[in-house]
């Protein structure tokens, strides 16, 4: 549903090179993680792909068009690192936020946010204000807010980084359940190896700044995936492979 192509993409902030010439082809419907050390340029890269930041050089295509095109047609749904919920909106209204703005381009076949909220276990909290929710619950609202847009591309920037380990494990399982079989393309930024392997079809390992691809690892674990996938010997192997690639990048 949403193929992403990068051709010799570069990004600089003044003198600072954040993305070195990078070429990449992401198949529609794939779950792709980008893992790399802090400050290497992951956020910048996904902001360029989401049309929030212009590229310095090279080309970016989302569905065969410029990212800005995808953005103006609400074909990119973002989940930021901080939930960014509006404190004066209830859970229900927060989940609707992205549908409420720029309405003319809303999808016709969107699933009602209430249904999704119910699916992530927030059915009893529809009329509650964000400050009454735990961090994990707030991030689930942020996830529903993005999914409710029914966009072909989902961009998630370290969405679980601020959560505790137990909550993160739950969120991995929940996210898999929500996107599996929906045909949505997911670009997922993380610096957790477990998270990348458990969720992805493909893991891209980046070097420290400027972003260069150290490894491109296919994750051949079966779907649908449950929590048990993390006990699979193949899972452990793949985690080791990602870890080694990260080390290679750090020492390069």
């Amino acid at each position: 549903m949403s193929r992403i192509v990068l051709r010799d993409l570069t990004k600089q902030f003044g003198e600072l090179a954040v993305v070195d010439p990078l070429s990449l082809d992401i198949e529609a419907g794939q779950f792709v993680s980008i893992i790399g050390p802090s400050g290497c340029g992951k956020t910048t890269l996904v902001r360029v792909i989401a049309g929030l930041e212009p590229a310095t050089g090279g080309e970016v295509e989302v569905d065969g068009a410029a990212p800005i095109e995808a953005r103006t047609h609400k074909r990119v749904a973002m989940v930021p690192q901080q939930p960014g919920l509006l404190p004066w909106r209830t859970v229900r209204a927060n989940a609707r936020l992205l549908l409420d703005v720029n309405r003319s381009t809303n999808p016709v076949d969107a699933v009602a946010p209430e249904t999704l909220l119910d699916e992530v276990g927030l059915g009893a909290f529809l009329d509650v204000f964000p400050h009454e929710l735990s961090g994990g619950m707030q991030q689930r609202v942020a996830l529903v807010r993005a999914l409710a847009l029914h966009a072909p591309l989902l961009v998630m920037d370290e969405p679980f980084a601020a959560l505790d380990e137990i909550t993160r494990a739950e969120m991995r399982v929940m996210l898999n359940r929500l996107v599996e079989g929906k045909g949505v393309t997911v670009l997922f930024v993380t610096h957790s190896i477990t998270e990348a392997v458990a969720l992805s079809d493909r893991v891209l390992v980046s070097s420290p700044r400027p972003t260069r691809l150290i490894a491109d690892i296919a994750i051949d674990l079966d779907r649908p995936r449950s929590a048990e996938v993390e006990d699979d010997p193949r899972f452990v192997e793949l985690c080791a492979e990602v870890r080694h690639a990260l080390h290679r990048g750090m020492n390069a």
Binding site: L52, R71, V76, Q81, Q82, G84, L86, V101, T105
Partner: peptide, 21 residues
């Protein structure tokens, strides 16, 4: 909140919508 501002930008919210919402 800058995170929310960025979020609204990601769906191309108009200036007046950012102002109002």
């Amino acid at each position: 909140d800058p995170a929310t501002r960025e979020l609204l930008a990601s769906v191309d919210a108009a200036r007046w919508e950012v102002l109002w919402r």
